[in-house]
Simulated scan of single mutants.
Amino acid sequence: MDRATVHSLLVQLRDIIRDEREHAKALDIQAMMADIQRKEILTRALNGVTELHPDDQKVVQEIRHENRKNAYLFRATLNWIQESMEFFGRKTVPVTYSQSGLSQNNLINGRLLSGRI
């Protein structure tokens, strides 16, 4: 593959990775999945490249940087979702009062999200 083609594919890959992040932030799943498919096609096309021109190293570094930004976004989002599910899955024990007016623990399973109405 000639240098111009490799450079063009690398620039396209960098731009698709940026688009993927923007679509993820906008929660546009269909566009994000299309980005992932295009990214896979470009990665397969670039698999055969064994040597890069020194000028293309800058683009490769940008690709790594953009990829890390995406990984950080996806990991942070996953952690947030896990923490939210953990919070809503915790057992809550409502405060009840005895006949004498003192608070007592109730043994009811009061999960915040129990799946029941």
Results as ranks from 00 to 15, higher is better:
1 M>E: 10
1 M>P: 05
2 D>Q: 07
4 A>Q: 14
4 A>W: 05
7 H>G: 11
7 H>L: 13
7 H>Y: 09
7 H>N: 15
8 S>K: 11
10 L>R: 02
12 Q>P: 02
12 Q>M: 03
12 Q>I: 00
12 Q>F: 01
12 Q>D: 04
12 Q>T: 05
14 R>C: 02
14 R>N: 03
19 D>P: 00
20 E>R: 02
20 E>T: 01
20 E>F: 01
20 E>V: 01
21 R>M: 09
22 E>Y: 07
23 H>N: 14
23 H>V: 06
24 A>Q: 10
26 A>N: 09
27 L>M: 11
27 L>E: 14
28 D>V: 01
29 I>F: 08
30 Q>M: 08
32 M>I: 05
32 M>S: 03
32 M>D: 00
33 M>D: 14
35 D>S: 11
36 I>W: 06
40 E>W: 04
41 I>N: 00
41 I>K: 06
41 I>R: 04
43 T>P: 06
43 T>F: 09
44 R>C: 04
44 R>T: 07
46 L>I: 11
47 N>R: 10
47 N>G: 05
47 N>I: 03
48 G>C: 07
48 G>V: 10
49 V>A: 03
49 V>K: 00
50 T>V: 12
51 E>G: 04
51 E>W: 04
53 H>M: 04
54 P>K: 02
54 P>A: 05
54 P>T: 07
55 D>K: 06
55 D>A: 10
56 D>P: 02
57 Q>Y: 05
57 Q>T: 12
59 V>W: 01
59 V>K: 02
59 V>R: 00
59 V>G: 01
59 V>N: 02
59 V>E: 07
60 V>P: 00
61 Q>S: 12
61 Q>P: 03
65 H>M: 10
66 E>S: 08
67 N>F: 15
67 N>L: 15
67 N>Q: 15
68 R>Y: 10
68 R>F: 11
70 N>G: 08
72 Y>R: 15
75 R>V: 09
76 A>C: 03
76 A>Y: 07
77 T>R: 10
78 L>C: 07
79 N>I: 05
80 W>P: 02
81 I>F: 11
82 Q>C: 06
83 E>G: 03
84 S>G: 10
84 S>T: 15
84 S>D: 06
85 M>I: 10
86 E>W: 12
86 E>G: 12
87 F>P: 05
87 F>R: 09
89 G>S: 09
89 G>P: 01
90 R>W: 04
90 R>M: 05
91 K>I: 12
92 T>Y: 14
92 T>K: 08
93 V>E: 09
93 V>Y: 06
93 V>K: 05
94 P>I: 03
95 V>E: 11
96 T>C: 07
96 T>Q: 14
97 Y>Q: 08
97 Y>G: 06
97 Y>W: 12
97 Y>M: 15
99 Q>M: 13
99 Q>V: 14
100 S>E: 14
100 S>F: 11
100 S>K: 14
101 G>M: 06
105 N>H: 10
105 N>I: 12
108 I>V: 13
108 I>Y: 06
109 N>E: 14
110 G>D: 07
111 R>H: 07
111 R>D: 09
112 L>M: 15
112 L>C: 08
112 L>P: 02
113 L>P: 00
114 S>T: 13
114 S>N: 12
115 G>F: 04
116 R>W: 08
116 R>P: 00
117 I>M: 11
117 I>T: 14
